[in-house]
Computed example of a mutant assay.
Amino acid sequence: MTDSAHRTSVPGVWAFGDAVNHFQLKHMANAEARLVRHNLLHAEDLRTLSNRVAPHAVFISPQIASVGLTEQEARRRGIACLVSVRDYADTAYGWALEDTAGFVKVLADPADRTVLGAHIIGPQAATLVQPLIRAMTLG
């Protein structure tokens, strides 16, 4: 267990990666390693890292990209959400590629319309999910 600066309860011992989060994603461990490095070198200016938005992608054909809550997670937690699903062909890129297999799914908070989750299956899904990640990060 660590605090938000990734310090453990043992003075001088820090942790990151699989030891402190359940995501087991390389990019998360990289960000945490940069954070711990900074905090070790700048004890007077500790930084923290939120893992509230943790995107992931599977680089197969077609690509799969996801961030945030799934519809099932939202229901299980009792979180109200609006759900919109569109064929990948309805996106500009999917239409241009004449894709007939993929889709885009977005979950939003019904009160403030912020993005709670996004899931894409289709060509370049890992790239196309980036603006949705930014929307979640910025609120």
Rank of each mutant, 00 (worst) to 15 (best):
Asn39Cys: 04
Glu44Ile: 05
Lys26Leu: 03
Arg37Asn: 12
Ser61Val: 03
His56Asn: 03
Val20Gly: 12
Asn30Val: 09
Trp14Gly: 11
Thr70Arg: 05
Val106Cys: 11
Met28Ile: 13
Gln63Ile: 01
Glu71Gly: 09
Asp90Pro: 04
Ala101Lys: 09
Gly78His: 12
Ala19Gln: 12
Lys105Asp: 05
Arg77Phe: 06
Phe23Asp: 02
Arg134Ile: 08
Thr127Lys: 14
Ala108Ile: 01
Phe59Lys: 11
Ser66Thr: 04
Val20Lys: 15
Pro110Ser: 07
Ala96Cys: 07
His42Ile: 03
His6Ala: 08
Gly12Glu: 00
Ala15Glu: 04
Ala135His: 06
Leu49Asp: 01
Phe103Asp: 00
Ala80Cys: 09
Gly17Asn: 11
Thr137Asp: 08
Gln72Glu: 10
Pro123Tyr: 04
Arg86Glu: 08
Ala5Arg: 14
Glu32Tyr: 05
Leu46Trp: 06
Leu69Asp: 00
His38Pro: 04
Leu82Phe: 07
Gln24Ser: 14
Ala33Gly: 14
Thr91Tyr: 03
Thr70Asn: 07
Asn39Trp: 07
Ala111Ser: 12
Pro11Trp: 06
Thr2Ala: 09
Ala89Val: 11
Arg76Phe: 04
Phe103Tyr: 13
Glu32Arg: 09
Glu32Asn: 10
Pro123Arg: 12
Ala118Met: 11
Ala43Gln: 15
Trp14Tyr: 13
Gln24Tyr: 08
Met28Tyr: 02
Thr48Arg: 13
Ala5Leu: 01
Glu71Arg: 10
Asp45Phe: 02
Asn30Cys: 10
Thr127Asp: 13
Ser61Met: 08
Leu128Trp: 06
Arg34Phe: 06
Gly17Leu: 02
Ala29Arg: 11
Glu98Leu: 03
Cys81Pro: 07
Val129Met: 05
His27Glu: 01
Ala74Lys: 08
Val129Glu: 02
Asn21Tyr: 08
Ser50Cys: 08
Thr70Ala: 01
Ser4Cys: 11
His42Gly: 14
Ala5His: 13
Thr91Leu: 11
Val115Ser: 02
